[in-house]
Write a protein that binds this DNA or RNA. Sequence first.
RNA 1: AGAGUUCACCAGACAAUCGUCGCUGGCAUUAGCCAGGGGAGGAAAGUCCGGGCUCCAUAGGAUAGGGUGCCAGGUAACGCCUGGGGGGCGAAAGCCUACGGAAAGUGCAGCAGAGAGCAGACCGCCUAAGCUCAGCAAUGAGCCGGUAAGGGUGAAAGGGUGCGGUAAGAGCGCACCGCGUGUGUGGUAACACAUCACGGCAUGGUAAACCCCACUCGGAGCAAGACCAAAUAGGAAUCCUUUAAGGUGUGAUCCGCACUGGAUUCGGGUAGGUCGCUUGAGGCCUGUGGCGACGCAGGUCCUAGAUGAAUGAUUGUCCACGACAGAACCCGGCUUAUCGGUGAGCUCUCAUU
Length: 124
Amino acid sequence: MNEFSYPRRVRLLTGGDFKQVFNRASLKISDQHLLILACPNDLGHSRVGFVFSKKNIRLAVNRNRVRRIIRESFRLEQQQLPNVDIVILARKGLGDMENKQVHKLIERSWSRLIKKAKPKFQSK
RNA sequence: AGAGUUCACCAGACAAUCGUCGCUGGCAUUAGCCAGGGGAGGAAAGUCCGGGCUCCAUAGGAUAGGGUGCCAGGUAACGCCUGGGGGGCGAAAGCCUACGGAAAGUGCAGCAGAGAGCAGACCGCCUAAGCUCAGCAAUGAGCCGGUAAGGGUGAAAGGGUGCGGUAAGAGCGCACCGCGUGUGUGGUAACACAUCACGGCAUGGUAAACCCCACUCGGAGCAAGACCAAAUAGGAAUCCUUUAAGGUGUGAUCCGCACUGGAUUCGGGUAGGUCGCUUGAGGCCUGUGGCGACGCAGGUCCUAGAUGAAUGAUUGUCCACGACAGAACCCGGCUUAUCGGUGAGCUCUCAUU
């Protein structure tokens, strides 16, 4: 398997997966337009899931666009990320951002996540 | 050339790299790997109508309730489309139109105005008939009245114009126009027309107010529904009841139909996977019937199918610098959003010949 691929096993697939992250979120990255929740898993890699509600991003086109950009970024960065399950929630205004802005925002968020996670999982 | 109008079509292009979801083939056969080829829209949207499909009985009867509303046709069906008629707008092409019934009933109508619906004397006009008074008389004044021509109010004042008529007036009479009814003619019909007959006109508006009439509609939805594994289970306690009621399916109600002892409490559990899922009232071409919507026949093509949810990102080049916007069972419409571009038909104006 290529290290930049995005197969099914790196996504959160069931309601149960999501519930677990919400209930046991030990990491929280907050931004004006974005909220990232994460909790450690023991799969040996990270997984990601998206919660973009109609309330926060009104048009389906924008929901798709933003999710694709973030997913693309995750695909390229996943080797740097710790072994955690990540849920990305949209906040108001995320749908109005330009592609380049979204790229910047998500890259900044990844590095914050890595920083925060390091001391907690140093034993791994 | 310009202005207008109708119809149809397109929705940045190309390349590279890295990804993603089906399909096909190969290697593997437990996840994977490689190659090929495919992967959002004209509105995918709003969910406003109509169907298919699925389950409820094969959807049956009655009531309630909803919808539609000029006529004819098209269609699986429609509130859609086509053609026609009436009315309105426009110079025209063309566009708009809930456009059945107000002499079955009920209701409603601000302000102004004398009067607003089995009409009405405010101003005005009249004083013929009758009465009173004055006067010889003509006549004048008053009373009783008459009058819908004119003014004024209003969105609307109970046909219009002209002549006759009269005290002044009035469909009071007549002519023409309009209206209604009948008849005839044309048209499938809506409706139109008339050297026709009758009626002096008796019928104001509002039915997206109730209502009446005609036609029409069973309910719920792919989280429908089916299957697999697990499981609704199995279990415990208490009470009621013995063959008819009750309960459930079952929907707004009743009937009918089907199934079934019932009620309460305790305890326990799932939001896995497969199918449904894309070949369809399908697209394109040709012929043919029809004014047309559309039908018929033949040929040809297969063109998204996700499910925490694919169709993307980055870079480069070019140009008219890219609008609105993302499938979720599938179709037919309607409505709304939309940068710009292309083609065709028609109307008008100007110029040239």
